[in-house]
Design a protein around this nucleic acid. Structure first.
Lengths: 187, 187
DNA sequence: TTTGTAATTAGACGAATGTCAAAACAGATT
DNA sequence: AATCTGTTTTGACATTCGTCTAATTACAAA
């Protein structure tokens, strides 16, 4: 996809702005166009170095060159600079929010604490417990009522300590109970 | 002065934004706060690397950390990102416009073509000729009238080819002539 | 065409940056 | 107090970046 390219492009823009000499050049060009030799003299840099910097700025679309008599004159492209940092940082939702984000963390946690479909250990961090319990709670059909021994039976598939699991599920508000009848909480 | 620090700070901000992993982190934090381990899992990076990136973002003032249970949770500082690129690039006038800009180029040109107060050669680039001639024209008192032989005498101090200099000065509109009388043009 | 001048490229080299493994740290849980 | 776990630091290594000199290129001026 072009998301990668897009990402690299954005990074390149900021990278182009991330050097003192180049910031100074842009400020000088803010007043009027400049040619390489002039910038080199003002900044006390070698013309080759200036050329190198200008290439980066041009590649990022921040300046545009034009020929003029002997000189290659560079001028500022103001339109790009009018955007906010946020606009430049922000990437399309789809690039990130397709659930991939949390899935990576979920997957890691699940892989750590589940072996062959069974819960090997209950993590001590609440965020991880949450993930574990959500996975277990998915085994219960929404809307259906369960007897306590049905609940125990299901939980027993995950770990022999079904009582702790049941308690956790209620504590985390994933399971509800009334008069010995259980049901899973709607999301 | 703090101009230097200011300049380095600005560059550091952009440098912090100039890396794909850090851009992704900011985008992830745009939805909600994140802790290091989570980011490491999502980005498939070593926790140490993530910590390093987060430190750069924090130093640039783009994110702020807070402790939360086991975790160090980082959240986005939106205010900074609201500014435009131009606002971040732009430096106070005084830092640049005190005439230092052009002076550097002038100095270089003058050093190249003047030796011991005498003009060793007339440059072929108009921008440089302009600088040379302005320097020579400064020898004439504003308002005062000069005979042609007085003009020649002054120019002879710079170069034996006084006739060419005189012609150039008029061509560049630095000296004016009427009926054999010369005067320097007001700025 | 020849010459001169600014711009760019190539090459080299030191400095800064990104990455990870391992160790040290900090702080909550037990 | 002892332990466990996420975070940060340290050290090492490869990569990228900034800078210069020297060589090359592109063109305007003569």
């Amino acid at each position: 996809m072009n998301h990668e390219k897009n990402l690299a492009q954005r990074a390149a823009l900021f990278k182009a702005l991330g050097h003192p000499a180049r910031l100074l050049m842009l400020n000088l060009m803010r007043e009027h166009s400049r040619h390489g030799e002039e910038l080199a003299a003002i900044l006390s840099l070698n013309p080759a170095t200036v050329s190198h910097h200008l290439a980066k700025l041009a590649e990022a679309g921040l300046v545009t060159p034009r020929k003029e008599q002997y000189y290659q004159v560079y001028s500022l492209r103001g339109d790009l600079l009018k955007k906010t940092l946020m606009e430049m940082v922000q990437m399309p939702q789809e690039t990130l929010s397709t659930g991939v984000e949390q899935d990576a963390f979920r997957a890691k946690v699940l892989h750590t604490f589940f072996k062959h479909g069974r819960l090997t250990q209950i993590p001590s961090q609440r965020k991880k417990v949450q993930i574990i319990l959500e996975t277990i709670a998915a085994e219960f059909e929404p809307g259906r009522k369960y007897e306590e021994r049905e609940v125990n039976h299901i939980l027993l598939d995950f770990n022999e300590d079904f009582a702790s699991l049941r308690r956790y599920l209620i504590e985390f508000n994933l399971l509800a109970r009334d008069k010995g009848i259980y049901w899973c909480v709607e999301k």
